[in-house]
């Protein structure tokens, strides 16, 4: 039985391993390029997240997921404003508990193709919504933004019991043309951790491990 170990990438080598798996999968599947400083969604060049989860089997990297801890994609490219967030908090009476300036965004979840179909994706997705990953030692939880197609929201968020509140339809950029469509558009959505994430997911410890069944 193989076991996937999941940890927050802290060392430079782990960050690079996570980035390279993401780059490899995104370029292979969507033709997307990456850069820290010449980001251009019209030319297919995406920005990097600032933090990563890394899934390994022995020394092999099999899964990764990123987290924007500043300049979130939804705010930078999705026209989501602080007012949008404030309105959502007000509707729950949670203005005092959250700071709209503290936003993160879970992004770029990838599973190496030979590990697909073994439950790894949803397990990683749930770990990416844990306090251990998104809070990064802060006292207050951040607001979690997400940008995805509606089919992803159904398959991942809804299936995991995570409520993702629609904020805005994400504008059409050429960089997303291989995965969005008129029938499956992209949205920017908001997750308010303490009310939208089931405690079993929010309190998931990291590092953690998942035993995979043999095929």
């Amino acid at each position: 039985m193989k076991s996937v170990e999941l940890r927050v990438a802290v060392r430079n080598g782990d960050v690079m391993r996570a980035q390279y798996l993401i780059v490899d999968m995104y370029h292979q599947n969507y033709g997307i390029l990456f850069s820290n400083d010449i980001v251009d969604l019209n030319s297919g060049i995406e920005p990097y997240p600032q933090s990563y989860l890394l899934g390994t089997v022995g020394s092999e990297v099999v899964a990764a997921c990123g987290l924007y801890t500043r300049d979130t994609y939804c705010e930078r490219y999705g026209e989501v404003t602080k007012d949008d967030l404030q309105q959502q908090l007000a509707s729950e009476g949670l203005e005092a508990r959250y700071d709209v300036r503290r936003t993160v965004e879970v992004t770029k979840l990838v599973i190496r193709s030979d590990y697909n179909g073994r439950g790894l994706g949803r397990w990683l997705f749930q770990a990416a919504h844990s306090a251990a990953f998104v809070m990064r030692g802060d006292e207050k939880p951040p607001l979690i933004l997400c940008c995805a197609t509606r089919s992803i929201f159904a398959a991942m968020h809804e299936a995991s019991g995570i409520r993702a509140r629609p904020l805005r339809k994400f504008p059409d950029y050429p960089v997303h043309e291989r995965y969005r469509s008129a029938d499956n558009p992209m949205d920017s959505r908001l997750i308010i951790p303490t009310v939208d994430i089931p405690p079993a997911i929010w309190n998931k410890p990291l590092p953690c491990a998942l035993t995979l069944e043999e095929r």
Binding site: H27, F34, N36, D37, I38
Partner: peptide, 9 residues
């Protein structure tokens, strides 16, 4: 190639 795709600049 991966080194350049990862940092297009």
């Amino acid at each position: 190639p991966l080194d350049l795709i990862a940092h297009w600049k």
